[in-house]
């Protein structure tokens, strides 16, 4: 089995982002960037499939600026075999990302495409489903378990009521949730080795995909501030406050 994994470079999940005063976006200067956390789980899942003998090759792809080679290198240090950077400085919407990934699928003919369930910058939760739609492949989103069974996959998905297990034939799209696995931290020798793995940097124009945004981002604003911050002195005081709130709710 050949696996394609899509990884995105985003503002590190631990950074508290700040909205720019002019409302044009969030502050990105001197902010720590790293691989989207969900994508680490996708890479880990791919590596585990190779280790289990179920897959033979992992191709890692990212769309973004030149610095995105960092996250491709991280994925290759974890066990990815080759990397492709589709380089662009422009904002690329999810529909265009999905179309670019479709073009890579056409070149690489993978049996499985693994993605994160959502990118924690735009929190879109769209690309995997869109790629599945474009390819007319089955999709198993929000995966917390993946098992290979003769020619297909059994995937346990995290859904609103708990979990559901489905089976899909290959080729298929799977998006990773956080409970899928524990992503490994690549040891230094693996990081060094990743640098010698093939990484193709290709301009976005090569793919013949129209990446003009369809949506206009009019402005980005900070969320409403909470006044908050009232310490109560004792459990009794809290109980009184709680009972007060409850009777107010009843009055509604």
């Amino acid at each position: 089995m050949k696996i394609l994994v899509a990884v995105k470079r985003v503002i590190d999940h631990a950074v508290r982002v700040r909205v720019k005063p002019d409302g044009s976006g969030v502050e990105t200067a001197n902010v720590r960037m790293s691989m989207n956390p969900f994508d680490k789980h996708a890479v880990e899942a791919a590596v585990q499939l190779v280790e289990a003998g179920a897959a033979t090759e992992i191709v890692v792809v990212s769309i973004g600026p030149k610095q995105s080679t960092d996250v491709i290198l991280t994925a290759m240090a974890m066990g990815g075999h080759r990397g492709i950077l589709i380089e662009t400085e422009a904002r690329v919407e999810t529909l265009a990302v999905a179309k670019l990934l479709r073009a890579v699928v056409a070149e690489e003919a993978p049996d499985l495409v693994l993605l994160g369930k959502q990118a924690v910058d735009d929190d879109s939760n769209q690309v995997g489903q869109m790629l599945a739609g474009l390819l007319d492949w089955p999709q198993a989103t929000f995966a917390s378990e993946i098992t290979v069974v003769d020619g297909g996959l059994e995937v346990t998905r995290e859904v609103d009521y708990g979990r559901a297990t489905v089976s899909v034939p290959l080729p298929a799209i799977v998006t990773a949730d956080l409970r899928l696995n524990e992503p490994r931290n690549a040891a230094l020798p693996m990081v060094m080795k990743a640098r010698s793995k093939p990484l193709a940097v290709r301009p976005v124009a090569e793919f013949g995909v129209d990446v003009t945004p369809r949506l206009t981002i009019e402005k980005v604003s900070p969320p409403a501030e909470r006044p908050g911050g009232k310490l109560v002195g004792s459990a009794d005081e809290l109980i009184a406050a709680l009972k007060g709130e409850l009777s107010e709710l009843e009055a509604l």
């Binding site: 735009d122 369809r214 981002i217 969320p223």
Partner: peptide, 16 residues
């Protein structure tokens, strides 16, 4: 729509 775990709110318009 919220972005960055709700730490920012994006106003988008679509001519689609």
């Amino acid at each position: 729509r919220p972005i960055y775990a709700g730490n920012a709110i994006e106003t988008v318009s679509s001519g689609q």
